[in-house]
Simulated scan of single mutants.
Amino acid sequence: MLEPTSSKTENQSQPVPSGAAQVESSEFLAFTLGSEEYGIDILKVQEIRGYESVTRIVNAPDFIKGVINLRGIIVPIVDMRIRFNLGTPTYDQFTVVIILNINNRVTGIVVDSVSDVTTLSPQQIKPAPEMGSILSTDYLIGLGTLDDRMLILVDIDKLMTSSEMGLVDHIVAGA
């Protein structure tokens, strides 16, 4: 039993091949807003639900649609189309709510539709270009490229911990 411990120590002193730690791929849930396709880290997704009516909160910004009661938890619902100024949202049979669990805080985001889970290697993720006022690059991981398809990869942690999302917490706490 002592021998494996000593060989473990020997292995630690050997150089690790460059790039060996970066070969892990990441999985993203792909969804659409308008004509664009976005992706968020699948590990942040708790569940996907059909869109249902919400309880509106007085004095909440337009992008906060309201709250729902999800198995005893009050969950704020943010409409991403309104949040990103992507035109007037329409709610149909494809509209879904992605329930996220970020830092033990449950929030729902309304998107036009969800397509699939996509695996991207680090080589398939390119830095995000400056996108002006539509979407701050502060909230972007980059652009995921797959053959003829491109995903705008959203850093949902940064987006949901921004000052605007802190407002969501304040409104829900007062509800």
Rank of each mutant, 00 (worst) to 15 (best):
A173E: 13
M160D: 02
R81G: 04
D62K: 08
M1L: 10
F94N: 09
L151Y: 11
E37A: 02
G66V: 11
G50S: 13
I99G: 06
T90Y: 09
R105Q: 09
D155V: 03
G108V: 02
D157H: 15
I134S: 10
T137I: 09
E27H: 09
K158F: 04
S113D: 04
A21T: 09
I77D: 02
D116R: 11
D148Y: 03
T88C: 05
T9D: 08
G108T: 07
M160N: 09
V172P: 03
V45W: 13
G108M: 02
P122E: 14
T55H: 06
I141Q: 08
S26K: 15
E52D: 01
M131Y: 11
G87T: 04
V78M: 14
E52M: 12
L146H: 14
D169I: 05
E3N: 15
Q93C: 00
S25M: 14
D147M: 14
Y91I: 15
G50Y: 12
F28Q: 07
G34A: 02
P127Y: 06
V97H: 01
T118Y: 10
D138Y: 12
A30V: 13
L151P: 06
L86H: 05
S7W: 10
P89Y: 01
H170C: 04
L86Q: 08
V114H: 03
I73S: 09
G144Y: 13
S7D: 12
A175K: 02
K158I: 12
K44Q: 12
S18L: 09
T5R: 13
F28R: 10
V78L: 15
I156G: 05
V106K: 03
M131H: 03
F94Q: 06
L153Y: 11
P129K: 11
Q93D: 14
P4A: 14
R105L: 01
F94C: 01
L153H: 07
G39C: 02
R71L: 11
G34V: 05
T118A: 09
V78A: 13
T55S: 15
D41M: 05
V117L: 11
A128P: 00
I141E: 08
S25G: 14
K65N: 05
F94K: 04
D169C: 02
P127G: 00
I73V: 11
F28P: 06
P4T: 12
V110P: 01
V16E: 09
L100A: 05
A60F: 06
V106G: 01
V172N: 06
M80Y: 11
R149K: 11
L167P: 01
L100V: 03
I82H: 08
N11K: 13
V114M: 02
I171D: 00
G142Y: 08
E130G: 11
T137K: 12
V154R: 07
P15C: 07
I64M: 15
N11M: 13
D116K: 11
V58M: 10
I73E: 13
D155K: 03
V45P: 05
I42C: 10
T55G: 00
N104M: 09
V23T: 12
G39L: 07
S162L: 10
E37Q: 12
G87Q: 04
S53K: 15
T88P: 00
T161V: 10
T88F: 00
P4G: 04
S113E: 04
I99V: 09
N101I: 05
M160P: 08
S25T: 06
P15F: 07
S13F: 08
H170P: 01
P76E: 10
E36N: 15
K65V: 07
H170V: 00
T161S: 15
L100H: 03
Y38L: 03
F31G: 01
D116E: 14
K44G: 00
